[in-house]
Amino acid sequence: MKTAILSLLFFTGIMCQAQTKVISYKSHSGSKSSFAKAYRNNLFDLKHSNFGIVTVRIRRLDTIIAVNNSITLVKYRESIAEYNLHTKFEDLEKSDFIHKTDTISNNQILNKKNTVKFIKKSSPVLFDTPIDEVVFIGFKNN
């Protein structure tokens, strides 16, 4: 399950739906009673829905650590809120992100057995992060 969740984070752009604030809210809430509260405080992902334009959660991969032949740790930053599809990582402040660490097991590419060169060649971009900006620890160098 964790591998599946991590695979999801790795290999997909986190693209959310294009929607208005009301549609965004109604898609998960059957009742209108909390809409005013959510709208007043721009709660959760409501802030970035507007004219029916796509929103995304911005991610930046920091470090990949090979613990052993089956376990790999992944450290990354994820924006707390969703943003317009065109928002770039550089546009956000440090405080807009939370740090996350996840564990993946038996991943074919992010595996201690592989060299950094092989991983970089296999996945030139992970989490929308250019692979050269990612720090690799515990992998073979050549």
Binding site: C16, S24, H28, S29, G30, S31, F44, D45, E82
Partner: peptide
């Protein structure tokens, strides 16, 4: 479990309660 990270209960009377 909503794809935009919401968790929703549906009760017997079909009303819903959602959480981030």
């Amino acid at each position: 479990v909503h794809r935009n990270n919401y968790f929703i209960f549906q009760y017997a009377d079909d009303t819903m309660e959602d959480f981030y």
